[in-house]
């Protein structure tokens, strides 16, 4: 038995919004791979839950008319990584979430839960940050759209107010078209582990594939929240691709991140790792895009 006090099941978004109004202190339960485990650890005893797991309208992925990729928040990691729209247009997102836990966790864990937890190690967060994802947040009063860049307020804290529900994650076409991405998760084990550091990059090359037209880079566990690496990005903009550029990008990363020491790794090791995996991820993304490092 889980020791929560009460559980309310929502069958639709409207019902979930009504329940959040009626039970302001209740936690939203999506796939449960965070909350149910915390309950087992004796951390949330006596809490009230609103299960949104049964809301099928919050599942699925589609390409909207203007080319925006829409991911509904209850879509499981497995469904994200196997979906044709993701495989075709932003395969790096599928590759990132395919590195979470094991198959059982990827079947139950949801992409919305992953980002609403607000943890810096969320494997989907760095890729969604790097692709300028936009969040659709719904309440009884209506819908607001918030850039994912502004969503994380602090460790474990996100900009979801009482009575609000994440109902959509959108990646605009401008952001994903002609990009090639790569995600590197550094962890102690190959499966069932939390990232020591994660880095997601995507590049858009010039027509002759000799220059980086645009670089996007974001990190997990390199700061208290998932962060974009704007300095590294601007270092790359419009630059011819060579080893020296890769080195400059990886050096620039230091200005963008503020890693901490934890039992998993020291701050120094994380700084070293960040430079190294940024370099490798950019290199891999450039190669996927058909560019080569030395002419």
């Amino acid at each position: 038995m889980y020791d929560f006090k009460e559980l309310h099941e929502a069958g639709s978004v409207a019902e979930a919004l009504r329940l959040t109004k009626e039970h302001p202190g209740a936690l939203i339960l999506a796939g449960g791979s965070d909350i149910l485990i915390k309950l087992r650890e004796g951390k949330l005893a006596g809490c009230e839950l609103i299960s949104i797991f049964g809301i099928d309208e919050l599942r699925g992925i589609c390409l909207e008319e203007d080319g925006t990729i829409l991911i509904r928040p209850l879509t499981s990691f497995t469904a994200v990584s196997t979906h044709p729209v993701i495989r075709q247009h932003i395969p790096v997102l599928g590759e990132a979430v395919d590195q979470i836990g094991g198959p059982q966790i990827r079947n139950i864990g949801t992409i919305g839960g992953n980002i609403c937890n607000g943890v810096t190690s969320a494997d989907s967060a760095s890729t969604l940050k790097a692709y300028d994802a936009m969040l659709e947040i719904t309440s009884a009063e209506g819908t607001r759209v918030l850039p994912f860049a502004e969503f994380n307020l602090g460790p474990g804290k996100v900009d979801l107010r009482a009575g609000e529900l994440l109902t959509g994650i959108r990646i605009p076409k401008e952001s994903w078209e002609r990009t090639y991405g790569h995600y590197i998760k550094y962890a102690m084990r190959r499966a069932m582990d939390i990232a020591t550091l994660g880095c997601s990059v995507n590049v858009r090359l010039s027509a002759d594939k000799k220059k980086i037209e645009r670089l996007r880079m974001a990190f997990g566990v390199a700061a208290p929240i998932p962060v974009r690496a704007h300095t590294a990005e601007s270092t790359a903009e419009g630059q011819p691709i060579d080893e020296a550029l890769l080195t400059r990008i990886s050096e620039a990363v230091i200005a963008d991140i503020t890693p901490r020491s934890s039992w998993r790794a020291s701050k120094e090791f994380r700084l070293h790792l960040a430079k190294e995996i940024a370099l490798r991820a950019v290199k891999a993304a450039v190669e996927k895009a058909g560019g080569s490092i030395n002419g």
Binding site: L7, G32, L36, S51, G54, T78, Q104
Partner: peptide, 20 residues
Amino acid sequence: TVLIDGLPYNSCIYLAIWAE
């Protein structure tokens, strides 16, 4: 581990009521 609609899940972190 059990299969739910053909996919493996950990039944220890799956609410019984979700099996409806």
